[in-house]
């Protein structure tokens, strides 16, 4: 019954704003701004597609195909951000041979805007990660790893603001606790800071001080756990000011984003696209002249 209501409301809404087809969005002039977020996570050095005989993912994935999709979407909407939620490294001999050089070079060619750092990105040690940075023409955003006593000091951003078509998009990044997950000789003196506290702080700075229209968290915390462990779902529920969490780590294949309600009663989207570059995630935000995506009287049913 609820579902039917939703469909009716949706068709009424779409008729009103005149969506004829997905490629011909003709909004009223006050809704002309369109921001596209593309994202990957846990690609794990999967450069080539899986072969036709692969038992689990035959003919799936491949960087060269992903590049085609990204190019097509950027041609359609230049106001696109391309993001990765970590674990770029480790999983095929490409990483063992080249240490991540090829992964970073390809992401640079595809014009990734930013990535956060996953636990496997420390697999050649923090020095191994640092050594590959010259190949990365995109930003690393990490808010809860304190790298000040490491070689990575000054190499990452606590947050970064991208402006597309006048829309300010603030991004911060969260990494998972490394102790017990990564050998401490690899991450060395990297300090893990409480992700919820950091998220509250960063999202407040971005939304309230820097006046960002959209706040995105790039997270490698993991989608959801049965334990008390901090996850993207928990993060969404216990913070405010975040509009979208792009996750990783748990290799969770979501067909569509999960909608959660935050501490302030507002909706937050949580998305993750599994692993190995099998899927490309896409979120489209349509905003009004004032760059609002939420106002009073928001009605969402999924």
């Amino acid at each position: 019954m609820k579902r039917r209501n939703f469909i009716q409301q949706t068709s009424a809404a779409t008729a009103f704003i005149g969506i004829g087809g997905l490629s011909s969005l003709s909004f009223k002039s006050s809704y002309k701004k369109h921001i596209t977020i593309l994202h990957t996570n846990d690609v794990h050095s999967h450069i080539e597609p899986f072969g036709p005989d692969d038992s689990r993912n035959p003919n799936m994935g491949g960087v060269a195909r992903r590049a085609t999709l990204i190019q097509q979407i950027k041609n359609e909407n230049p106001n696109t951000l391309l993001l990765d939620a970590g674990d770029i490294f480790q999983g095929t001999p490409y990483f063992n041979f080249y240490g991540g050089e090829l992964e970073f070079k390809l992401m640079s060619k595809m014009k990734y805007d930013a990535a956060t750092i996953g636990n496997h990105d420390f697999d050649n040690g923090i020095d191994g990660l640092y050594a590959q940075l010259p190949h990365a023409e995109f930003d690393f955003i990490s808010s809860n790893y304190d790298f000040s006593n490491t070689v990575m000091d000054g190499q990452t951003h606590d947050h970064k603001i991208f402006t597309k078509d006048g829309v300010k998009i603030g991004i911060f990044g969260l990494g998972i606790e490394l102790q017990g997950l990564v050998n401490d000789s690899l991450y060395k003196e990297t300090k893990y800071l409480n992700p919820i506290e950091i998220a509250q702080d960063q999202s407040r700075i971005l939304k309230e001080e820097k006046n960002c229209d959209l706040v995105i968290c790039l997270s490698h915390l993991g989608y959801k756990y049965s334990s008390d462990k901090i996850s993207d779902i928990k993060l969404a529920q216990t913070t405010k000011n975040i509009d979208l969490i792009i996750g990783g780590h748990t290799h969770t294949f979501l067909e569509k984003p999960t909608v959660e309600t935050n501490k302030a009663g507002k909706k937050v989207l949580v998305n993750q696209v599994g692993c190995y570059g099998l899927y490309l995630g896409r979120i489209d935000f349509y905003l009004d002249d004032k760059n609002n995506i939420e106002t009073n009287g928001v009605k969402i049913e999924v």
Binding site: Y31, L254, E255, V273, G281, R282, I283, F285, Y286, E294
Partner: peptide, 8 residues
């Protein structure tokens, strides 16, 4: 205003 999400 709308938000759409899907995977490709």
């Amino acid at each position: 205003a709308e938000i759409k999400g899907h995977r490709i």
